[in-house]
Design a protein around this nucleic acid. Structure first.
Length: 589
RNA sequence: GGUUCGGUAGCUCAGCUGGAUAGAGCGUCAUCCUUCUAAGAUGAGGGCCAUUGGUUCGAAUCCAAUCCGAAUCACCA
């Protein structure tokens, strides 16, 4: 659907022809005309009034006439109101569009497809996924789907933070308190099982610190001297030395966690083409430090630690190698960026990571650029805001973390209760029902987390749970199911669709025609919320249409055909838009 | 203190590449199921778009300052 683009181009051409002034088509602003004014699309004349030195009316008349004549059969009329040039599009244009639209090709693919990596999820192996991870996973998945929809090749990756002191804490606690218990013996999901020992570690640590303070140590000393903390540090050292027993335990506990993650990922629909483990990548980037030194990008201090000075870029000095020769977080990320580039040769790499790491990624990109790594310019940090509770941030210590599994199960349960109370799916089999509850519950949750601009922090109120009415996933799923229900009765064979359009029919066609452009916008901005909003508006519009006009009992055969076709297109568009959000739409609900 | 991001209806959010009377949803009130799925539709009510100044035909949108909130500025990851 190129209509808007064509209008811009025609306007630019007209200005060129009449006034010999070169205007880029992108400079022409085309809006949907206000409902109470006659017309379908509006061009704002003010932008050119001054530049061309003509009055809005004079300019409007000249442009209106020229554009109208350049698009015969498409534009039937124009008018000028207070500096706005309004064009009326012919019914025939929309009828042609409705008739020829192909549900298998709702999107015009991008002319320059790229290979793009999307890295998301990044779990820690010491605790289960929580609400924040869900936002990350849904965003990553959706971004990947949107880019694919546009015609790009997407490589989904995940970096697992499977090493470090926090893992050792869980391990120590397990050794101390578990008595050999395992997820199998307790029947607990592996990630929750390990997460519990992380909590137990913190409890024990806190108790030890308090005890030490009571025995006369200062708070600082106590925190340093707590035996369990020392044990964890010792264990990390052993791990790094490759101590067989430690590595064994580490592997064993990680296996439990991964088994748990797999269940969750499967449930919420996350997958990765390639998973990187920090235990394999944490030594990367060391050779790049030497290269950087040779290139004089980095410099060495007296204690032989290596730094980069970013003060001229408005940032600080940053260490890239410790004096003991070990690398730091940023170093391994540089190394990993290069590794990924070598393995996949992508045009761009999108990191879905929380906004608390904005500074880190700014530095990462800058350093990669200074090192002239091929990956550098393609690095893009998709920074998303935290999910907060009405009471403030989630804090594991205060037990206010919203667990991902619990939340998903809760949503599915609500979907079940709601669906059963409505009693519209009595003919479903138990397996179908289960699938439906999952679809609706997850749909509600995903939509809720994706409908907000990713970069903004959002508030989630677990008390109120998530609504199934209004601007929600189930509302759109319901609209889809409703259309499908009608189509099952009317059939989908369409012949003649008549020669005129009612306002609601036209509005629906216009909205449908926008889909491709909306996908492009969402892809460009890496913002699924744009698609969520689009899908909601389309569903809402269809529901108004549905309430006003009958499809099965339309006033004529032509009208029936036309509305069936509009129903087919709306259902297909909703399905595809939701699919790009990672949300399935049921045939019946 | 520096940097970055945010402040729009009671609540949660759109709108921000300047354009016509600032929009949704939830909540509140009212109306609509013997006819295609009421998880729906229609209507009412609700706003000094944080504040002040500037830019201009026109500012929620751009600029500056101020106030409030958040993140970050680790030899943690």
């Amino acid at each position: 659907m190129q209509l808007i683009q064509n209008l811009k181009q025609a306007t630019a051409n007209a200005i060129q022809a009449i006034y010999q002034v070169q205007i880029k088509s992108e400079q022409v602003l085309v809006n949907a005309t206000k409902p109470e004014i006659e017309g379908d699309y509006t061009i704002v004349l003010f932008a050119f009034v001054k530049q061309l030195g003509k009055s809005p009316d004079e300019l409007g008349n000249a442009l209106g006439e020229a554009v109208k004549n350049s698009m015969p059969g498409t534009i039937t009329d124009f008018n000028i109101v207070k500096g706005f040039l309004n064009f009326t599009i012919s019914d025939q244009f929309w009828l042609d569009y409705i008739q020829s639209a192909d549900t298998n090709q709702l999107i015009t693919p991008t002319s320059n497809p790229r290979k793009i990596m999307v890295e998301y999820s990044s779990p820690n192996t010491n605790k289960p996924l929580h609400l924040g991870h869900l936002r990350n996973n849904f965003l990553g998945w959706s971004i990947a789907e949107i880019l694919k929809l546009q015609g790009n090749e997407v490589v989904k990756t995940c970096i697992v933070n499977d090493r470090g002191i926090h893992i050792c804490k869980s391990m120590i606690a397990w050794q101390l308190f578990a008595n050999g218990a395992t997820p199998e013996t307790t029947g607990q999901k592996g990630d929750h099982f390990v997460g519990d020992y992380y909590v137990k570690y913190n409890d024990a640590y806190k108790a030890e610190v308090e005890q030490l303070i009571a025995s006369g140590l200062s708070k600082e000393e106590a925190e340093k001297e707590a035996p369990i903390q020392k044990a964890a540090q010792a264990m990390l050292l052993k791990w790094e030395q490759g101590d067989a027993e430690t590595i064994d335990l580490w592997k064993r506990m990680n296996t439990w966690v991964y088994a748990g993650f797999d269940v969750t990922y499967k449930k919420i629909g996350s997958d990765f083409f390639k998973t990187y483990y920090e235990s394999n990548t944490y030594l990367l980037g060391k050779d790049l430090v030497d290269q950087g030194l040779a290139k004089k990008v980095f410099y060495q201090k007296e204690d032989s630690s290596v730094w980069i000075d970013l003060t001229s870029d408005g940032l600080d000095e940053k260490i890239v190698r410790r004096k003991d020769g070990t690398s730091v977080y940023i170093t391994q990320d540089i190394g990993l960026a290069e590794l990924k580039q070598k393995e996949f040769n992508t045009d761009a790499s999108i990191y879905v990571v929380g906004d608390e790491q904005n500074y880190h990624f700014k530095v990462l990109k800058l350093i990669c650029q200074k090192l002239q790594l091929p990956a550098a310019d393609g690095i893009y940090h998709l920074s998303y805001g935290m999910v907060e509770l009405p009471t403030g941030k989630m804090k594991s210590r205060e037990g206010t973390v919203v667990d991902a599994d619990d939340l998903v199960d809760g949503m599915v349960q609500i979907a079940k209760e709601k669906t059963e109370s409505l009693g519209k799916v009595d003919d479903f089999s138990p397996a179908q029902l289960e699938k439906l509850f999952d679809t609706i519950g997850l749909g509600a949750l995903k939509f809720f987390l994706l409908r907000v601009d990713p970069k903004k922090k959002m508030i989630f109120n677990p008390e109120e749970s998530i609504d199934f009415h209004g601007f929600t996933g189930p509302f759109i799923q319901y609209t889809h199911a409703r259309i499908k229900s009608i189509l099952r009765k009317t059939g989908t064979a369409v012949h003649s669709i008549g020669t005129n359009l009612l306002p609601l029919e036209k509005a629906l066609a216009m909205q449908l025609a926008n889909f491709s452009a909306e996908v492009n916008e969402a892809a460009e901005a890496l913002d699924p919320s744009k698609l969520a909003i689009y899908a909601f508006n389309l569903a809402k519009l269809f529901n108004s249409f549905y309430a006003e006009l009958s499809i099965a009992n339309a006033e004529s055969e032509d009208k029936k055909n036309l509305r069936i076709q509009l129903g087919i297109l709306t259902a297909a568009t909703l399905k595809q838009a939701m699919h790009a959000l990672g949300i399935e739409v049921p045939e019946q609900m």
